[in-house]
């Protein structure tokens, strides 16, 4: 990443700790859902976030939008610090209302995220109302229909309810709702995971077209690295609340260096028998540890084939291994 790039969204040392229900008030336990994560997304590009369930992808996205108040860290949007827990002593908590319009989210589950009692037109219209973006009733209606058409639905659909739509169509409604307020930045949280393979490509293409048309910036969350690689310019890999590696998409795919990223990539089933038969999978031992009580030092050490006593003692540093390629591991020289 070039230093002079126009950064739209940046987080520094972001932390989000959730208290564990039932833990003692004297010795409170926390889930460190996001633990000291930093990244910057240049305007008009996509940062992909991958990792296994519970590693903190969704929480990163939601904390960045301040749907949760961050435990610590700094959030900078378009040059303005909109949140700072006082990293350098100065606390900031900006009024989010003007930013709510610019920063939108599309959810994983198109079934749960749409109000079943509202028509699709009103679901899209609600966002327009909240931000007073329509000059008149006609203007509101025009805007709704324009948005529905833009995502491949039509004016007839405006009067129908979410349950009358297929999964892919519902996801289009969710995207229309996010787009209706003319945002600059969208967190796409597993927007295609609930969809059939044949519908996934439709939605991916649409998100890409919309990005080009409106100059949108995305944080794209998914557990499917092939999809993330396809849509993202850069990719961050998370494990148990930590970012373990980050680089440009091709760099991650072809030259990743963290042992976890390597196993993640090798575990992806490739839809080509000649390749998949020839490739050797690195099958990791064991389960993902609980984020309430993560392993000391490097969180990955309980499953890492390269772990040494140092890995249990000391947390590995976040280092730039080549320009724009960051990784946190003690033993990069030994990883093959």
């Amino acid at each position: 990443m070039m230093a002079n790039q126009d950064i739209l969204v940046e987080v520094q040392h972001l932390k989000q700790y959730f208290p564990v229900a039932g833990s003692s008030i004297f010795k409170k336990a926390y889930v460190k859902a996001v633990d000291d994560v930093s990244f910057a997304i240049p305007r008009g590009t996509t940062l992909g976030l991958v990792g296994e369930s519970g590693c903190g992808k969704t929480t990163t996205g939601r904390t960045l939008l301040q749907l949760y108040e961050p435990t610590a860290g700094r959030i900078i949007y378009d040059g303005e610090t909109i949140f700072d827990s006082g990293l350098d002593g100065k606390k900031v908590k900006a009024n989010m209302l003007p930013y709510r319009r610019k920063m939108q989210i599309v959810f994983q589950d198109p079934y749960a995220s749409l109000n079943p009692r509202m028509t699709v037109g009103d679901i899209v219209g609600e966002a327009i109302d909240i931000h007073h973006l329509a000059a008149s009733r006609e203007d509101r209606r025009d805007k709704i229909i324009k948005m529905l058409e833009r995502v491949g639905l039509n004016s007839e659909h405006a009067n129908r309810y979410p349950h009358e739509f297929s999964g892919g169509q519902r996801q289009r409604v969710g995207i229309a709702r996010a787009l209706a307020v003319d945002p600059e930045f969208i967190v796409c949280d597993e927007p295609i995971s609930a969809l059939d393979v044949s519908i996934q490509a439709q939605v991916i293409n649409m998100l890409e077209d919309l990005q080009h048309e409106f100059g949108l910036t995305y944080l794209f969350i998914a557990h499917d690295l092939s999809v993330v690689k396809h849509i993202s310019s850069r990719i961050g890999v998370m494990y148990l609340g930590k970012m373990v590696e980050m680089a440009d998409s091709n760099e991650i795919t072809f030259h990743c260096c963290h042992p976890y990223t390597k196993s993640l990539i090798s575990a992806i089933p490739i839809a080509d028998p000649k390749i998949s038969r020839a490739s050797k999978r690195i099958v990791l031992e064991g389960d993902i540890p609980s984020p309430v009580n993560p392993p000391s030092g490097c969180h990955f050490r309980t499953r890492c084939p390269y772990a040494t006593p140092l890995c249990a003692e000391k947390e590995p540093e976040w280092k730039e291994v080549s320009p724009g390629h960051f990784c946190a591991c003690h033993h990069l020289d030994q990883v093959k």
Binding site: V197, N205, S226, T253
Partner: peptide
């Protein structure tokens, strides 16, 4: 319709 992890230039799906 499935994206190919190992292509260097992403082409439209």
């Amino acid at each position: 319709s499935v994206p190919n992890l190992y292509e260097e230039e992403s082409s439209r799906l």
